[in-house]
């Protein structure tokens, strides 16, 4: 049985780890709540002060623990609360992407998005889109057995 069919049969839901910066994307997730923008209950948000704090270590660990997708989010370029932390995130993300690709993880499983504190609908749409993409792919190949 392919991962896709297994997912359909078991009603499997992916688990997504979303790293959000305190000032923009976490606020965007709050705005999604305030606007009641419904989204699948797949994401677990981890707050950091700046997307520049998101370490490749955190992302790899998330995959090793069983994440079906990891999201790196922050302020729009030029809007960083700490001047340019997100510019550095962008550079690190390129590196992250290449390593993740080399591990044989599909590109949909690691995504970068800039979401401002006012973009609640964008946040909700993002979670919905990623969930749809991951549902098609099935569980992550790195997911340890039995982890939910």
């Amino acid at each position: 049985m392919s991962a896709e069919t297994a997912a359909k049969v078991n009603g499997w839901e992916p688990k997504i780890v979303a790293f959000c910066c305190n000032w923009c994307s976490y606020g965007g997730a709050d705005s999604a709540g305030m606007g009641r923008f419904q989204q699948p209950p797949t994401a677990r948000i981890i707050r950091v002060m700046c997307s520049g704090r998101i370490d490749p270590l955190h992302v790899f660990n998330a995959f090793l623990e069983g994440a079906d997708a990891v999201l790196v989010t922050g302020c729009h370029i030029g809007d960083c609360h700490y001047v340019n932390g997100n510019d550095k995130t962008k550079i690190k993300y390129k590196f992250l992407e290449s390593v993740v690709r080399e591990l044989g993880i599909e590109k949909e499983r690691l995504q970068l998005n800039w979401i401002s504190a006012s973009e609640g609908e964008k946040f909700a749409n993002f979670i919905r889109d990623v969930t749809e993409q991951i549902k098609k792919l099935g569980p992550s190949p790195l997911k340890p057995e039995g982890v939910a």
Binding site: K15, V17, I46, V48, M49, R53, H58, E65, A67, V147
Partner: peptide, 23 residues
């Protein structure tokens, strides 16, 4: 980074998931 140490962030990452023995 105090209050956002690697160990603190990783504790959250790890506990996103339910492990077989916990589940």
């Amino acid at each position: 980074q105090s209050h956002f140490k690697n160990s603190q962030i990783l504790a959250q990452v790890k506990n996103v998931f339910k492990f077989p023995e916990v589940a």
